[in-house]
């Protein structure tokens, strides 16, 4: 799950060196916390959250493949 979010985030931001992803698992729930440079927040969230929601949709499908649920939080550095 982590690799998916990391790949998308690094491909979308101006500064890939500031991308960090933390994955924690509680039971069947995977929580992903994504941190990007402040200047890149807009690129990851998008207008009305459209980009972040698209990433969530893909993440949900990937997690469902393993019978799990996943959530994504974008965290400001």
């Amino acid at each position: 799950m982590k690799e998916l979010v990391e790949y998308i985030a690094k491909s979308l931001v101006e500064d890939p060196t500031q991308v960090s992803v933390v994955e924690t698992e509680e039971g069947d729930h995977i929580r992903i916390e994504l941190t990007v440079a402040k200047e890149d927040m807009g690129r990851i969230i998008g207008k009305g959250g459209r980009v972040a929601n698209s990433i969530r949709t893909l993440l949900r499908v990937a997690a469902a493949r393993e019978g799990k649920r996943a959530s994504l939080d974008v965290i400001e550095p």
């Binding site: 491909s11 979308l12 459209r50 990433i55 949709t57 893909l58 493949r65």
Partner: peptide, 25 residues
């Protein structure tokens, strides 16, 4: 079918994310 999703939501997300990556590169 999981790649299409309800009302092609997954497919649209895949298309959107791919387009954005292309645009950025």
């Amino acid at each position: 079918s999981i790649l299409i999703g309800r009302k092609s939501e997954t497919l649209n997300s895949l298309q959107y994310v791919t387009s954005l990556i292309l645009c950025n590169q």
